[in-house]
Design a protein around this nucleic acid. Structure first.
Lengths: 347, 347
DNA sequence: AAAATTTGTACAAGCGCTTGCATAAGTAAA
DNA sequence: TTTACTTATGCAAGCGCTTGTACAAATTTT
């Protein structure tokens, strides 16, 4: 048969002169084992360089100390910062984090879900991929008893799940008010795919702010992008700024697009913020350092990440007897006014 | 005793009318099982919604399809991009990736190493933490049969390990030549901790280029930073630029520091690139979009990431009989001249 | 038609732990 | 001293899979 590989609990038992059950309990600080025995067992384990096989423990207890993180990709400021925090917080709570990049593909999201289920993961923290519009794979996870927490990109169709979000509608509303307050009155909007709730909400907030302010809502000034990449931002800026009836401000649904919009505008001789105000959702690490610096909306990635792990672990450890109350937690955002919309006071 | 949890191989065996060994082999496409049987077994598995328990497989085979990634943090452009690629490549090869951020702490690096060993990980891809100067934990992993690939931040003290690096000495040498070629002749250098080989090499390359060009090497113009953060960059720029004998160019060992150096210089009225040339190692996503854009050195994070996974998997699957040949692979870098050192042709 | 192969499948041990229950030893109460 | 509890430890089954080996059936060879 197979040969044993490394030092195991049997070796420790022999070395310490106890049975394996005593060793197991001693190493787990079970109350039933006397202090003296524990000392002896631990000494023996140390002597042998014993390292508990986490796999065997997982199989035995049917649970692992690993959290799966489903995220579209790591190359965006918000997500990279979120994952950073997730990992950090999880580590502090004794969990490891397994990263799965969906690349915004629904297919890959499902594949990963299967892998995670097969790995008997403790729980999942997910940000829906942009493509995702069916949610059976989440139901599947839940059926298997895997707890899920959704962050930022959520869907009302996924029930009984903790969700951690910002108020996209309200934030976009306030962002728009900020631009209006700076004296811009012809405002364009660059949206992500409205299939994603969050982009739909942002767009609504934008439109509502215009309506409240009595400003025109020109359908020609609303553009959509699948991925809001840097290149997409340029493409759309080009389109918008080549119309006869040009807007004098652009609100983009992420920050990358804002940055490329600014770059393109300057390139064709449009001054920012004098001729064109630009504001972008989210915040990239360099939003503050650009020239002009980019007015942004800070999403509390750190807070969201911390909460996500805490809530997940809370649910994992919840008494299975009583039903866990799933919350939708809405965190505050912060508008960071910078030069790109600063039309009022000259720099 | 414990109650079984989900659909397992026994259930499938019963449903299909075969023994569990046949089921196991059928699901693994073992040659000894007839095609007909395989079809039946797989159908039964599908009917029951069976999902193989990866934990049990791992325990049984004593190996897992998980690669541990040890990285200082995710918030730097190079590392975030590297990890992105690692994950992507690993996924394509049927592996998952478990991310461990050391936060540049040696202690945490060791803790993680233990966790990874306990998880019977297939292999480790690591970037040494800045603090690390002893390497027993890597030896430990290797003793346990865990393959290791080192990327970017390596150490000659870790033997028999595949290493994937750039030529830091040569790259810094060429970078310095670039600045000199632009007509700067009083060049300061901002180094990371030279305990890390890579920073020592970069510094050597810088010094050598000065020597070759016959330029003065003013010890006052060489500064060190522990983490080369944005704030550190500002602090050091302040220090260097407040000397009576100011340099007219600054080479920083990463790009973040270059960006903050530029920001600080402009703030106190020093023009970049006219009065001060700035070049930074690495490349942050926005280096190109800054004003002025930052002359950088592109490290091939994508290529490094891909190779790292490929080499690791290659070693994992290598015949244990014959000894695997560990290579040190050196990849090309690319100097990207941008505005921040463009003194010759006016923009 | 018998013997020798070649399939195809089943049995059962083992991977390294956890844990319910039994039991032995130690202590307190009767 | 006997009985009744505690407290500490051991036994053995079980978690869900893999896999060496045995064996029966089907196929080929003589």
């Amino acid at each position: 048969m197979k040969k044993k590989t490394r030092v195991n609990i049997y070796d420790v038992a022999e070395e310490a002169g106890f049975s394996i059950s005593t060793v197991s309990r001693a190493l787990n600080d079970d109350a039933r084992i006397s202090a003296k025995t524990k000392v002896k067992v631990k000494a023996a384990a140390r002597r042998l360089g014993f390292q508990k096989n986490a796999i065997a423990t997982s199989l035995s207890t049917n649970q692992s100390k690993v959290i799966g993180v489903l995220v579209s990709e790591l190359n965006r400021g918000f997500l990279s910062s979120l994952v950073h925090t997730l990992e950090d917080t999880a580590f502090a709570m004794g969990y490891s984090v397994i990263i799965c990049q969906t690349n915004n593909s629904h297919e890959r999201e499902k594949t990963y879900m299967d892998t995670l289920i097969a790995s008997r993961i403790a729980g999942i923290i997910a940000t829906l991929s942009l493509e995702t519009d069916s949610y059976e794979h989440f139901e599947k996870a839940k059926e298997q008893g895997i707890k899920v927490v959704l962050v930022d990109r959520v869907s009302p169709k996924i029930k009984s799940t903790t969700k951690i979000v910002i108020d996209d509608y309200q934030t976009a509303f306030e962002g728009t008010q900020h631009i209006i307050g700076q004296g811009y009155d012809k405002i364009a909007y660059v949206s992500g795919p409205t299939k994603q709730l969050l982009y739909a909400d942002r767009l609504r907030g934008f439109e509502q702010a215009l309506k409240v302010a009595g400003l025109p809502l020109n359908p020609e000034w609303i553009e959509y992008s699948d991925d809001l990449s840097y290149e997409e931002g340029t493409r759309i800026a080009k389109k918008i700024l080549s119309r006869k009836d040009k807007p004098n401000a652009i609100f983009t649904a992420n920050n990358l697009a804002a940055i490329s919009t600014i770059a393109y505008a300057r390139q064709i001789g449009i001054r920012v913020p004098e001729d064109l105000g630009v504001i972008g959702f989210s915040e990239e690490p360099f939003s503050a350092f650009m020239q002009p610096s980019v007015t942004s909306i800070r999403q509390p990635s750190t807070e969201m990440g911390k909460l996500a792990v805490q809530k997940l672990v809370e649910e994992i450890n919840a008494d299975p007897g009583e039903s866990y109350i799933h919350q939708k937690i809405i965190l505050d955002t912060e508008l960071i006014p910078r030069e790109s919309t600063n039309r009022l006071c000259k720099r």
